[in-house]
Simulated assay, not measured.
Amino acid sequence: MGQSRSPLAVADLERVAARGWRGTEEEPLGDWLLRAGGGFTGRANTALVTGDPGRPLPEAVGAVAAWYRGRGLRPGAALPGAQARPADAAFAAAGWERGEDVLVLTAPLVPGSDDGVPVELSPTPDDGWLGAYRHLGNALPPTAPAVLGNAPVVVFAAVRPEPGAAPVAVARGVVTDDWLGVSAVTVAEDARRRGLATAVMAAVTRWGADHGARWVYLQVTASNAPARALYRRAGHVEHHRYHYRWAPD
């Protein structure tokens, strides 16, 4: 559907994605965006470094550090694409540690076909959904629901082995402008290789199309080979990469 290339530049797509996965507190630093969400996920608890912070870079690095330390959080920064290289060098010079690459993948939105797997869609995550989503393999902290639900057009997909049972596959979708963001795709270990990840993603893309999305984006760590293969089969291509920098403990 539509064009074969994303119509947005790196900084613009990052700002769209930031609106789709928000912390519970935000504050601008020039063009940069300071975000805090109780420590749940890097995306919700790092400074999004796009554009000009409105001050010399070493001073901006210090301002980021002070903002997060004032909230009891380890200071972090998300540095997307080539546009962030000068800032990345400033964070590195201050001794901030570099995380691994995260790939931002995009594709024209093509609603997935219904293969008969029943997928529940809800505007809020219930306890079963929250229990099934394993962020980096870990159970969710108490601040997670506030971050996950902090979007005006959001859906939570779940596959349950039977009505009322705990989900064995989940995903989250959010529509911002004409973009669908897909995240939190998780399948229980004993339910893998049954097409459930494809099923929840297909349901979320159908929902996104119904809500006006024309494009889809998602993020995946460079080391997550199975997820990258899944998304590649679904037609997603790399738009850009970002990485985090974390202040010394």
Rank of each mutant, 00 (worst) to 15 (best):
A225K: 06
G51F: 03
P28V: 12
A234K: 15
L103C: 07
W67S: 12
V185I: 15
A144F: 10
G99T: 06
A157C: 04
D126Y: 05
T205I: 13
R206V: 05
P75Q: 10
W32A: 03
G137M: 11
V185Q: 06
A165Q: 11
E162Y: 13
R43F: 03
V175A: 06
H239V: 10
Y68N: 01
A171T: 07
T124G: 15
Y68I: 01
A65R: 02
S113A: 15
A144L: 11
A229T: 14
G38N: 10
W96P: 02
R98N: 04
D31S: 12
D126N: 10
N45G: 07
G20C: 08
P142W: 14
F91G: 00
G81C: 13
F40V: 09
A222Y: 03
L105F: 00
V154C: 13
L73Q: 12
Y217G: 03
D190Q: 15
N45M: 06
A229E: 14
H240P: 02
R206D: 05
V102H: 02
V119W: 01
V64R: 00
E59T: 14
A66D: 13
R85Y: 04
A213Q: 06
L103G: 02
G235C: 10
V110Q: 12
E238F: 01
Q3F: 15
L196K: 02
G112D: 11
G195F: 08
P145C: 02
V16Y: 03
R206N: 08
P152Y: 09
P56E: 09
P226I: 04
R71H: 13
R134M: 12
R194Q: 15
D114F: 03
T198Y: 04
R98H: 11
D126P: 05
V168N: 06
N224V: 08
L8A: 11
A191S: 12
G212N: 12
Y244D: 00
R206P: 02
R19W: 07
G173D: 10
P226Y: 03
V10I: 12
T46I: 09
G39F: 11
S183D: 09
A89M: 01
E120T: 08
S223V: 13
R206H: 08
Y244T: 00
A157Y: 00
R71E: 11
A213E: 07
A225F: 07
V174L: 01
T124C: 07
W32E: 02
A139I: 06
R194E: 13
G137F: 07
A197N: 05
E162Q: 15
L48A: 06
A146Q: 15
G128L: 10
V147R: 00
H211G: 09
V110F: 08
A44C: 14
V174I: 09
M1N: 15
A87F: 01
D190L: 12
A66C: 13
P86F: 04
L136Y: 14
V64D: 00
D127G: 15
V170M: 03
L105C: 07
P152C: 09
H240V: 05
A47S: 12
R214S: 14
T143P: 13
V16W: 09
P142G: 07
L148K: 06
Y242L: 10
R241L: 13
G23E: 02
G137P: 10
A203G: 14
